[in-house]
Design a protein around this nucleic acid. Structure first.
Ligand SMILES: [Zn+2]
Ligand SMILES: [Zn+2]
Ligand SMILES: [Zn+2]
Ligand SMILES: [Zn+2]
Lengths: 136, 136
DNA sequence: CTTGAAGCTCTAGTGGCTAGAGGAATTATA
DNA sequence: TATAATTCCTCTAGCCACTAGAGCTTCAAG
């Protein structure tokens, strides 16, 4: 049996976050000590580790809800898991694309030789998208 | 003089967002019609365009506050503007780096030949970071 | 003068936590 | 065993940058 603090240390999930996951229904309400403190089992630990790792990989809480559900049913086909993962991969890729466009634009505008704001490329560009090379 | 709706159409900023910016002190409170509706000048329009474009480029509202402030003082050196932009560029680049690591990992796990959850690479990897190739 | 679009204020919700108040339980030390 | 230090409890509110909706008022066209 682990206290919430021990669970937190073992998983790297902060204590208020654990309680938040409980409230969101991602983890079951654990048993309590006589004094009403949470006591977790190994199952609780591995479930929380699963959540932590999924968050680290960028999955949303809603995605994780689905993935946890699937993981409880080993006999089901894994196509649902794959479509969640594939969708997430797409999201990640489209975010990368957008950020790369930003990066290019930001690199360009920070090459400014002006000394003062009146003719600064940063300020001028912000005031006029026409000076940009790409859309965003 | 523009109504808030006209301003919204010209800048692409939604009406509630314009009011939100006013509340946050990013734009001045505009004059009002006799019936208490907002009436904007060309100055208000260009200030909001500046904000919109800065948001499109990913700057935070706090950054924009500083950049707007600078843009009102053309005689000042533009080094402050540059450090805001450079910091933002760094943020963008570090986000790209993280997302690329995610992308690689996600690509890897979605190559799963198993038919069911019991042996699915997606689910197995989520349960065990040891199966990952990179940190995240 | 009527009607419908557009505006007003105010409140609350989004996601995924995080911080703090004020108290109770547990654990470690003397 | 007494006390002190630490951990835990619940509850509320805040973060960012909006977005949505209720219930009302004003404006512009016909
Ligand atoms: Zn400059
Ligand atoms: Zn632009
Ligand atoms: Zn699979
Ligand atoms: Zn991993």
């Amino acid at each position: 049996m682990f206290s919430i603090g021990q669970l937190s240390k073992r998983t790297g999930v902060k204590i208020p976050t654990i309680r938040y996951y409980e409230q969101m229904g991602l983890i079951d309400e654990p048993e309590r000590s006589e004094g009403n403190q949470r006591r977790y089992t190994k199952d609780g630990l591995s479930r929380l580790s699963f959540i932590r790792h999924s968050r680290d990989l960028g999955f949303s809480v809603e995605d994780i809800r689905g993935l946890l559900d699937l993981s409880q049913h080993p006999e089901k086909p894994c196509s649902d898991a794959h479509s969640i993962a594939a969708q997430h991969l797409q999201d990640v890729q489209s975010r990368i694309t957008k950020l790369r466009r930003l990066e290019r634009e930001l690199k360009r505008i920070t090459k400014c030789d002006a000394g003062n704001v009146a003719t600064c490329a940063v300020i001028e560009t912000l005031a006029d998208h026409g000076l940009c090379e790409t859309e965003h």
